[in-house]
Design a protein around this nucleic acid. Structure first.
Length: 971
RNA sequence: GCGGGAGUGGUGUAACGGCAGCCACGCCAGACUUAGGAUCUGGUGCCUUCGGGCGUGGGGGUUCGACUCCCCCCUCCCGCACCA
């Protein structure tokens, strides 16, 4: 452990420093000794109610359980900076508090270890990623241990352990072996689907049976394809971001606005590839609805709701009219709209450029007199369409969503018919309509939609208003509310109705005519689950002679990651858009081909060579903490019920406190919730949600400084003088940002622990604000926390003699008792609400009171000294253990009962009450705490200053709140 | 643009609708010291003619009373962003 910072305190042997002062050197000594003892004695071993980790359960059997957890770290090798431990310390303080207060506390820690950084390092060095990963894990473990966290080390694991990813693969097989029954609203096993199809009680779901022939007439291979299309984990040909230069597909987040890879700046192409997908969209409703049952912040819930993006509306079908078309074959364009009420205002239609109907709808030629703005300057619609499609395909998804761009598009040369009024609507393609959302086609209502209005302006299309705008409306699209207008035909009128009523009426009309129906769509897409990478979980899937996927039997798990010579995917010429991904595993030829007996004799199979994404291992790790050594099952149902089960009717269950960064709000938490719900449906877990209470800890940033050239200078060496910041005597400019090497403002926990000890570091981090709040780091302020711990130490230990100052016989004064119980009350409040700053402030007040009352050497009543040590124990556990032991206790303070405030000492006998005149405080009077309003008023009137204010005036009203204040309202 | 959150001393923050600024950093003074980046004690919102006045981003409102509740505006942070 490096100790680069200089110690601010003198060595204890130097003259002037008392020999038994709590110095950083002594803190180090105490901390290391207690960390060894905790480990040797298994102080933080949490007993399970049953199974191999159940030893000692009888000690905690009557306690309520409490499961506290951090988002586990990815061991990057870059090392921790002072911002990283914030959340870990928050759960640590909470778990220590809950243990002392009588809970059976589970507080484990594991490591998310598959992933790209280790693989890239392996590609560069040729070293196996496991080696660097394990070294990084060891480094983080040592840092966490040095912070004094109370993790149960027996429950630790990494996602790369074969004993762990065996069960990640097993969960994949559960998803592969299940389908979503929309009637039941839940996942069921594929065997049940087959049985219902065989029995004729169920038809294949829409889109799963391309041949359209009845199930009974399908051959075996065709039937398997139908089944495979139902599965929650399924293969799907989908457009992905293929980057030949990197040899891999990229997520949307990894592609820049100009269509290149964020890493390496290689061209990225949208191309269809067969990939594993997870049918998370089937769970969209439950993922939204169950948010209401979670103890999460509203902002996180809103983000998840937005990501899922549920919107209700209607599908409406338009038949394509005759204009310009020679082959009069009828086509139907289906659109999705949230505003079917505005159907009378539709004046044109737009398809996404990639819409499958585009080729068949494109007219052979432009009709005479076609507006030149509609043709894109092309001689025929086909040429215009081709040019426009090419242009659109070169734009990345991100770029297409840039709202500032002027609307573009071309006319297909045809019109469709508005079912409500027979109006002929020209059909365009335009890239402001997205392929993946809704039906990839819209009815355009420029009167009430901003985007459609913009397009209509550019292309000279008519605008029909169907919602009455207010008097002062100044044009453009009116998206507000108002009565419907211009919306009637022979059969139906919406005029005068409000939006909700109009939607209901028009939808009923469309349904009756067979032209549409109410529906719901989602922004959420199914989860792309394949990666062309080495350092991930292999799929437990092989392909047979029909090239169809077959599950590897559970008995053959785990499918171990094979050794390879080269960890990189095959890369191609940067612009080779037609190249095929070739994952690293595909080159492990002895591995990819395998002979297995899957029940019908030994046959040759080909293994899946993609690996799972990084999210897989983090989707379910909370379940594995319950017993990571279990080789028989993913999780013992009895343990799951105990640690995660619902606490009562309607309760979702789950981890009691989950702390982590905001960056995982959407993807990780959504994916984990999805898997958990599948496991719930299939009967493996009793809880409906994985994380009952979620807290996002704030970030710690730090000041950084630039010189006159704009270069960053080492922040640690900048001094402040008279409000100016100087580096080597020259003024520098102060900025504020992420802690790290690039801003030269890195501060590590190791440095702080070296300079002050872990307890001081813990107290400082916890004292700077509520856990959720982001905050600046300020090294110079750490000393305040050290001073506090020194004063607490001094309350118990005489600095000169080392003798314990606790006095068994002395009774504390009433004033001291009040200070103590106020502190207990406040500390409990702070602990329960994760506002550790409050808890520390109350501890400081008590300490300051004791320092004043008893000086540096007088005996301190044991009945006050001991509770003080207990109060600070969750925050500064090493210091507390040492003092607790010096006070004569042989057991760890970690299991000592947390003090309970006595109400008697929380109420005062007499209270100071403010006296206001016209709402302004003019005086204070001292009255008995139980004085009623009349007594309060009398005391206030008797006060000289008040008498001076009210004599000769008319007192119109007197407000007297017992225990609070008196307010004279003058007339 | 839409949605969410937040604006309080020099700084981090604290205040069941009831005395704004607890606690800490910093700063000022003192004690102990050869010394102080140690420790301890006291002071520290702003203005002031020393009576007091003004203060929680700005403006309104509700109330006897508003940092707190309501409306409008400003600023900052976060998320989403042509999602039909």
């Amino acid at each position: 452990m490096s100790q680069t910072a200089s110690q601010p305190n003198a060595d204890p042997t130097v003259d002037g420093v008392p020999p038994h002062r709590y110095t950083p050197a002594l803190a180090q000594q105490i901390e290391l000794a207690w960390q060894d003892r905790w480990e040797a004695e298994g102080t933080f071993h949490t007993p399970n109610p049953t199974g191999r980790l159940s030893a000692g359960f009888e000690r905690v059997a009557d306690r309520p359980k409490f499961f506290a957890m951090d988002m586990f770290p990815y061991p990057s090798g870059a090392g921790l900076h002072v911002g990283h431990p914030l959340g870990y310390l928050g759960t640590d303080v909470t778990s220590r508090f809950r243990r002392m207060d009588g809970d059976n506390v589970l507080h484990p820690m594991g490591y998310d270890a598959f992933g790209l950084p280790a693989e890239q390092y392996a590609v560069q060095t040729g070293q196996h990623p496991r080696i660097t990963t394990e070294a990084n894990i060891a480094a983080i473990k040592a840092q966490l241990r040095r912070l004094g966290v109370d993790h149960d080390d027996r429950r630790s694991f990494a996602t790369i352990d074969p004993g762990y990813y065996k069960w990640t693969q097993w969960i994949f097989l559960q998803l592969f072996g299940a389908w979503f029954d929309p009637e039941a609203g839940k996942a069921r096993r594929v065997e049940e689907l087959v049985a219902e199809l065989d029995a004729g009680t169920r038809e294949p779901a829409p889109g799963t049976n391309p041949s359209g022939r009845p199930w009974a007439e399908l051959g075996e291979v065709a039937r398997r394809r139908v089944i495979d299309a139902h599965r929650l984990a399924y293969l799907h040909e989908a457009p992905v971001n293929w980057c030949p230069g990197l040899g891999t597909v990229l997520s949307n987040e990894e592609v820049t606005a100009d269509g290149r890879s964020e890493r390496g700046n290689f061209p990225v192409f949208r191309r269809p590839l067969k990939q594993w997908m997870m049918r998370i969209t089937a769970y969209a409703d439950r993922l939204i609805d169950d948010l209401d049952r979670l103890d999460w912040s509203e902002s996180v819930k809103v983000m998840q709701r937005n990501w899922i993006g549920r919107s209700t509306g209607a599908r409406i079908r338009f038949t394509v009219g005759a204009a310009g078309r020679v082959d009069a074959r009828a086509e139907t364009i289906e659109v999705f709209t949230t505003r079917p009420d505005t159907l009378f205002g539709a004046t044109y239609m737009v398809l996404a450029p990639e819409h499958p109907l585009v080729p068949s709808l494109t007219a052979p030629s432009w009709p005479d007199g076609t507006d030149p703005r509609w043709t894109g300057g092309a001689a025929t619609p086909a040429e215009a369409v081709e040019a426009y499609q090419r242009q659109a395909s070169r734009r990345s998804e991100l770029d297409r969503q840039d709202t500032g761009r002027e609307k573009t598009g071309v006319w297909l040369g045809v019109t469709a018919v508005n079912p409500v009024n027979g109006r002929e609507l020209p059909v365009f393609i335009a890239d402001y309509v997205l392929t993946g959302y809704g039906t990839g086609a819209i009815m355009a209502v420029p009167g009430e939609d901003t985007r459609d209005f913009e397009f209509a302006q550019v292309f000279g299309l008519p605008v029909v208003r169907t919602v009455q705008p207010p008097e002062d409306f100044d044009g453009g699209a009116y998206t507000g509310t108002g009565p419907m207008i211009n919306s009637a035909n022979d059969e139906i009128s919406l005029n005068g109705l409000d939006k909700v009523a109009a939607i209901t009426r028009i939808t009923d009309w469309l349904v009756a005519r067979g032209s549409g129906e109410g529906t719901t769509t989602y922004k959420l897409r199914d989860w792309l689950f394949s990666r062309q990478r080495y350092w991930g979980e292999p799929f437990p899937i092989v392909y047979d002679e029909d090239d169809l996927p077959v599950a590897v039997p559970t008995s053959m798990l785990p499918v171990l990651l094979p050794e390879v010579d080269d960890y990189s995917p095959k890369t191609f010429d940067d612009d080779d858009a037609d190249s095929e991904p070739e994952p690293p595993l595909s080159r492990a030829t002895e591995w990819t081909t395998v002979v297995l007996d899957l029940g019908d004799g030994p046959k040759q199979y080909r293994r899946e060579t993609n690996t799972m994404p990084n999210w897989a291992g983090s989707c379910w790790y909370y379940l594995r903490y319950l017993d990571p050594g279990d080789d028989e099952q993913m999780v013992d149902p009895e343990l799951e019920r105990y640690w995660l089960g619902p606490r009562g009717e309607g309760d979702v269950g789950g981890v009691d406190l989950y702390v982590g960064g905001v960056e995982h709000i959407v993807l990780h938490l959504l994916y984990a919730r999805f898997w958990h719900k599948v496991l719930y449906d299939l009967g493996y877990v009793s809880s409906e949600e994985p994380f009952r209470r979620l807290v996002n800890q704030g970030y710690i940033s730090a000041y950084a400084y630039t010189d006159e050239r704009g270069f960053y200078v080492p922040a640690a060496e900048v001094v402040e003088e008279n409000g100016q910041f100087l580096y080597e005597g020259k003024p520098v400019n102060r900025e504020y940002g992420k802690i790290g090497k690039s801003l030269k403002n890195m501060v590590t926990p190791d440095e702080m622990i070296g300079a002050y000890g872990a307890d001081t570091f813990r107290v400082y981090e916890m004292s700077t604000g509520p856990l959720e709040q982001s905050r600046p780091w300020e090294t110079k302020a750490v000393v305040g926390s050290q001073r506090l711990l020194q004063r607490i130490w001094r309350v118990v230990v005489d600095e000169e003699t080392g003798a314990v100052r606790a006095d068994d016989d002395q009774a504390p004064s009433e004033e001291t008792l009040r200070a103590l119980h106020r502190a207990i009350d406040g500390v409990r409040d702070g602990m329960a609400t994760l506002r550790f700053n409050i808890a520390i402030a109350r501890i400081t007040e008590l300490t300051n009171h004791l320092t004043q009352a008893f000086g540096a050497t007088s005996p301190v009543p044991r009945s006050v000294a001991e509770p003080l040590v207990l109060l600070v124990a969750p925050l500064a556990p090493h210091l507390a253990e040492e003092l607790w032991s010096r006070l004569g206790h042989t057991d760890s303070v970690a299991w000592a009962p947390f003090p309970v405030a006595d109400q008697q000492w929380l109420v005062e006998d007499t209270v100071q009450v403010a006296v206001q005149v016209n709402g302004k405080v003019r005086s204070q009077v001292s009255v008995p705490a139980d004085a009623d309003a009349a007594a309060l008023e009398a005391a206030a009137r008797a006060d000289e200053k008040i008498a001076g204010h009210i004599t000769g005036k008319t007192v119109r009203r007197v407000v007297a709140v017992p225990g609070r204040l008196v307010n004279f309202v003058l007339g």
